[in-house]
Structures are given as C-alpha cells and as structure tokens.
Design a protein around this nucleic acid. Sequence first.
DNA 1: GATTCAAATGTAAGCGCTTACACTGCGGTC
DNA 2: GACCGCAGTGTAAGCGCTTACATTTGAATC
Lengths: 353, 353
Amino acid sequence: MLPSGPHARVENWIPNLPSVPTLDDVARSAGVSTATVSRCLNSPERVVEHTRKRVMAAVEQLGYTPNFGARVMAAKRTFTIGAIIPTMENAIFARGLQAFQEALHARGYTLLVASSAYQPKIEEEQIRSLVARGADGLLLIGHDRDPAVYAYLRARSIPVLSAWVYLPDCDQPTVGFDNRASMRALAQKVIDFGHRSIAMISGITEGNDRAAARLAGLRDALGENGLDPDAVPVIETPYEIENGAIAFQTLMQRDMAPSVVMCGNDVLAVGALRGARELGLSVPQDVSITGFDDIELARIVEPQITTVHVPHREMGRRAAEALIDIVEKRNSGASVELQSTVRMRGSLRDLSV
Amino acid sequence: MLPSGPHARVENWIPNLPSVPTLDDVARSAGVSTATVSRCLNSPERVVEHTRKRVMAAVEQLGYTPNFGARVMAAKRTFTIGAIIPTMENAIFARGLQAFQEALHARGYTLLVASSAYQPKIEEEQIRSLVARGADGLLLIGHDRDPAVYAYLRARSIPVLSAWVYLPDCDQPTVGFDNRASMRALAQKVIDFGHRSIAMISGITEGNDRAAARLAGLRDALGENGLDPDAVPVIETPYEIENGAIAFQTLMQRDMAPSVVMCGNDVLAVGALRGARELGLSVPQDVSITGFDDIELARIVEPQITTVHVPHREMGRRAAEALIDIVEKRNSGASVELQSTVRMRGSLRDLSV
DNA sequence: GATTCAAATGTAAGCGCTTACACTGCGGTC
DNA sequence: GACCGCAGTGTAAGCGCTTACATTTGAATC
C-alpha cells in the first residue's frame, strides 16, 4: 500500500498519507483479486467458504471500510434515504424519525436529514440538496407542495413518500392516517358530550395539509350535526406552547366564550391549558380542551388531555419499509393507512350528564 | 422502474439510459473541455467571463447536477457531517440536533444521522457506517468509549467532536458543559435548603459519562458538606418516565425515606413526580424532587421542577461551528465550555425556613 | 484418461469528476 | 524579431469500486 492497517507507520515518512486501506490492499493481503474481495462483501454466497474466510480475516486485520463514493459511482446506488421534516423539535417528528431511522438501519440504509421549519422555500432547497447527494429515495411530510417539485423528482426517478397523511387517490404513495376523519371523529365525541359552542386553535394551515385537514374535519362534524361550520371561531398560530396560551385567552375573552377549545395538536392544547390556568379557569369544569397527536405531554399535564392517538413510531417504521420497497423496486408503492384513535381523558367535560 | 414516476416512458426506447447529463455532456454542449466546466463550477474566478457564461448556459439548459459520488471520489470531500446520538426521542438531543443541522446547513453541509440507543456496540457500527459514507467529520455524544474507536478515526483522519460534555484536558475537542460541576451546584442548593437525606435516581452510568458525572457531582457536594458520599441511595435506570416513577416508589418505601430525590434528568424527575402522586405524597410538602436539563416538560408539570438549565440549542450550534472549523482546518479544535444554570422552581422545598 | 461444464476466480473496463501538468497565444522586453 | 511570463484552456491520470466477461479449476461423466 504503502502499508496500511492498524499498525501502519507510514505517515511518519510521508506526512500526507494517512493510508486508509483500499479494496486493493485487502486483495493483496488475502492473495486474491479485487473482484473476489468485492464479492465477499456484496454477495458472499458466490465465494467459496475457504476463500471468504481468508478475505474476511484480511478485511478485519486491515480495518478496511469500503469507500462510499467509489461504491456509489460503480454501483449507482447510495443506500441513503433522505428525510425532510418541519422540525425535530416537535416530539411527533422526532419519534417518527427515530423509528424511521431504525428501520432504515435494519435494512442497511442510512438517513440523511434536513429540516424545513415549515417553509416551502427551504424545503425545496433541501430536496435539491438531498437529491444531489444521491439519496435513493425521499421522505417528505404531507403532500401539499409545488407540482414543480414532484416534476423535478420524477425527472430524476427519485421515489418519494409522503408521510403523516393518507391520500389513497394520490399518485404518490403515502403512509399515514386520515387527519380529517380523525378530527371529525374527535369532534363528534365532543358534540356527543353536549358541546355546541366550539372554538379551535389551529396550526398554520397554509402549506400544511395536515393542519388544514384537521380544521376541515371539525367543520365536517359540525355540518353533520346541524351546526354552522363557518361560525366556529378559529385562530391559526404556529405550534408553540406559548401561542396556545395566547390564542386560548383571546378566544375566551370574546363575547361568546366557547365551552370547548379544540386544538390542532397537543402542544397547542398544553398551551391552552396553561392559558386557562392563568385566567383562573379550571379545566374541564369551566372549559374543555382537546388536543391531537397524543404525545407524552398530553398525559403529564393535569388534567390529562383528551386527544387523538397517532402511532408515530409505527408510521416511521412503515414509511421506511414502504420507501425501501419502492427503491428496491419490490413494488410501485401502495399507500398505507394507519388507524388513529380518540383517547378520552380528563380535559373534556361531558355536559350531557 | 427504471425511470419511475407515472409518466416516464423513456424505458420503452432505450432501456438503460435515463440520460442524466454529465460533465462531459455540458463540456461538449459548450464546446470546451471538462476541466473548464469543472472550474466554472468550483472556482469560477479562474475562467474568463466570456467562457464562463457559455458554460453556465449549457449547465442551465441541460439541467445538469454534479454527480455526488464522482465528486466525492475525485475531491475527497463530501460536505457531509455525521452525528450519532443515543436517541432523537429525548427532547434534549432532538433540540440540539435540530440546531446542529441548521448551523450545518448555513455553512453548506448536510447532516447524516444515526442513533445508538445508548448501546456502545451499535454506536461503533454506526460510526463505521458514517465514516464509510465519507462523513467529513463526526459528532458524538459524550466521550467515554473504547479507545479503539478513536484510533480508528484517527487512522482515517476524521475529526470528531464530543458534545454534551466539557473536557478541557481531553485530546479531542468537546463542546458542552461540566456535568459534574452542574450537579454539584444543584446539590449544594439542595443542601443549603436544609436537606440531609438525599437519594438519587440516575441514568445508567455504564458507558454514559454524563450520567456518571452527574452522580459524581452529587457525591462531591455531599463530601464537601460533611455528609457521607457513599451513603446516598442510588437507583440507576434508563431514561423513561415510567422508570422514574418506579424508582421513586422504591426509594420512598425504604426504611429511611429521603427528603429529596434528585434525578439524573427531567424525564426521570417527571416520572418521580408521577410516582409521588400515585403514592399520595405531595411535592414539595412531603418530598422534594429535582431534575436536570430543563426541557419543556419541567415547566409544564405541577409543581414545576427545580432543575439545571442547559443551553441545548446553543450547544448544537456551537458544536457545528467548531466541527466545521476543524474539518476546514481553520483550527485544530479548542473545546468550548457552555454555562449551565440552576433553575429554582416549585418542586424543591426550603426546609430551612 | 479424456471430455464436459459448472463453479470459482481473475482481468480490466469503466463510473463522472478534479486537478497536476502541458500547451497555446498574447502582450511586453530586450 | 526572439524570448519571456502568464492567463486561459486542454489533456489525461487517477480516485476505489462493481461487474461483464474471460479464464482456470476440478468433480463428474463417459
């Protein structure tokens, strides 16, 4: 090699050669050709045991690790999947991404991560960046984005999967749940409990189809129960606890204070709860609050929050599997629907009893 | 597929040519050599304007994007940084990683993520995987690991940065805070408040120098105040809310129930709080609880938790900057110490009044 | 013992890019 | 007018790997 290996001292003579072992070094050391070494690594069954053992020993002894760039060039595959999420700071994405990464790893893939801070412009830039890096496939959150993005990806034959939404009729595969139906189901419970004066604190719906679907789900339920879908007071605000508190107080100080404030996610709901506490209102006696997502927070506050449970970990895992299946051409990508379930807890009062 | 995407029909004509333009195509189209095109892209000032414009037009017109793998091979740089964290599910890592990624992106780097689930074996495997993928540098959490790992990295000249710890005497750069001193400071407050019967719920210390340092910090404070450092009851348990609750109950049911239970992090503290509630004990009247990290959870529970505030976001950002500086050889990597601060809140009772 | 044909292994051609080095041509200089 | 230096450009050698194809090996068959 310039002898390499764990005990190589070469760099003492030639300062600029840290002498990382290459396939060639392994081949020489094991007394075989590079092709055989490559086969040992990529399709071991094609090499007879006796040789394979010798090669593996050399690999071990030299501390050889294949060079990624070279491998990519020769094989046209990176075994890398890119994911772009709004932010890791929201527990639902952190959890989903964690599961996604674990599943990827189990299948021999590595995760490239970027975040968009909920901004379409940044997201597009990140998509290009991950594609340029050779991501074999891409995980995106939601599906509502500029068609040009999908065209770009299609032109480069990069499979994309949208998660956190379930859109059976969409031409891209999705892995998620029906945000709209989930919120409708929760709202139905709320209405069943006798609530008629309902307000909502929603996430920003522009460019966020999940938030928009949840709001739509509430309106669906209202309409189905003879209530006016357009009369519901809605405040849109970014997903931050503090914003939930502020929005809650704004809603409660209107002429007709609602009997329940439904929130676009648990973070906002926890904020609303804090807002209620600050106003001296007790939950659920004076006002009810609901959330969405069922993150840990929802069960930690007092009272615990009635919310919609979403299997985030499973979503991450299934997304990884579905995406790899497409990348490896095992199928063309059917969407996967996961079930969400309403979790009744203390923050919602039953007015009908 | 080959070409995927619903509208790709190309494979009907020329099965193996999805025809992604290469440097060569651009060169031919612009009537220059590949070297000139490459220079236009990498060091434009070395090409005369007239030529450059022609080349850029060709790039634009063909929709050329450089091939990452090839570039890596030839240039030996990936502009990719790898990070291996225990898990994204802990808010402190999610937050730090988010900031890390943002800072990386601002400098033109992309983040490769892997997680170890607190298991050294998995971590080592992930390190190899990220190195193989050509990460220009690596972010690791804590510094306590097999020397062979550092030898491996050194042999490959991969810069490593340890975060979440501050070790000025270490031969690797670190960006973090002094876990031991931080816990000592908190324990001192606890002792100042008149507590003498102290117990601790610690994270698993094996292979986790942060957890070990926190425990050591408590012992330091005890020793300095004439209390027996070895008499303190300690339960080690993984960082999960449920475990905190269980450990808390175990501690309280001993002969000498402590007046305060100090926890290795806020997650355990929240669990302890729940454990107290289940036992019918009120905090801080019957027993005090402290945490560590100051995650959102700590301010959401009732009472709010006395804890040590750690600037996770800043840590992520500074780590990114320091690591890139090393990668780009702007310096050889001085450690950065961040300040943690004790946050006094309702969960700790002052017995001295 | 000669022949056959898998199985095992080797040979070598790229993959698309960067960059050291070679070349070209032009405006000074002597 | 021969020579120099230099900016601008071209030539071509790899980078480390995978893989199509060529070659060797050896067990099985006749």
